[in-house]
Write a protein that binds this DNA or RNA. Structure first.
Lengths: 164, 164
DNA sequence: TATTGTTATACTCTATAACTATA
DNA sequence: TATAGTTATAGAGTATAACAATA
């Protein structure tokens, strides 16, 4: 189980920014965007979360998936079973440790992932209130934050952070 | 069922900004923040989502909750049952239409909501890379976007958008 | 007749516990 | 002995369908 990152220190502006961001996600227009995205490729939200964290190049050990998602290993088995049934991923052998299975995306999985991400990454209509200059500002600020998020770049080179 | 807000038109910068924001939520440090927040008050994520959308002043018809969340009415019954069992909400009669039940937060529910929000709204550590000036910029840009999100301000005056 | 909400029911999602194989 | 993954099972979350009360 991943330990929560709760510090209790942050500037007022930073707290407000994060709060608004959270509101936008959990109660705004885009509130069920993740559900839409997974529905667009006929999988459950759980499967899409897995799909997003994988890639066609680097096999991710199932144990790492459980750690990343903070879930039980048995659920990872269920997840990977589901991905395999859809033809989206496969279990590869680990080169040195025969206990671990490295999960890699198939090409079919890669395409499904791209489809889902197109839905997921479509900005909500409210973004239109920002001028182009403001949208660039916002993009740059968020990019800086994301670059500092260690979890986001942990083990997966071509993970979610790769440009579409 | 709420119709998805997919337009297909947006500036490149706007799309990138939204994408990064989505990444931050679904694959970054704060990836399971909502789960933590609901655990902090001993409810399921579903119940917290309901809690967040309610308040102590304005009763929200169950039908409106179903529309907002894009879920079935029967699930709203389950949700409100759960909130009542925790003493977090109650069903009030509608003044003119005896079919509808207006759901209002109890004081106990209000306190639980505040506790959960304190967890939910705690910014992830990666926010520290931004200077105070940058955090203010980010806050202002996001506030502008949130103000334009109609869903966020639909029927609930003291909803999630109210300052802590 | 149409709408709000409930009940009964079943299917999906996720965790706990006990197990096998490998290190 | 400890760790990676699986199986069996149970519990929570969510939907569908049929229903009661009210409009």
């Amino acid at each position: 189980m991943t330990t929560p990152t709760l510090r209790g220190v942050a500037t007022k502006a930073g707290r407000d920014a994060w709060r608004t961001l959270t509101e936008l996600f959990f109660d705004g227009e885009a509130q069920n965007r993740f559900h839409q995205a997974s529905a667009s490729i006929g999988v459950s939200p759980g499967l899409l979360k897995g799909l997003i964290h994988l890639d066609t190049v680097t096999g991710v050990p199932m144990r790492d998936l459980a750690d990343h998602f903070g879930c039980d290993a048995s659920y990872v088995t269920t997840l990977v079973d589901g991905l395999e049934e859809h033809g989206f991923a496969r279990r590869d052998a680990h080169p040195t440790d025969r206990r671990v299975k490295a999960i890699v995306l198939t090409e079919h999985g890669e395409r499904a992932r791209a489809t889902a991400m197109a839905v997921l990454f479509e900005p909500p209509a409210c973004f239109d209130v920002l001028s182009t200059a403001e949208q660039r500002q916002l993009r740059d600020l968020l990019a800086k934050v994301a670059a500092a998020d260690t979890t986001l770049h942990e083990a997966v080179p071509h993970g979610l952070a790769a440009p579409a």
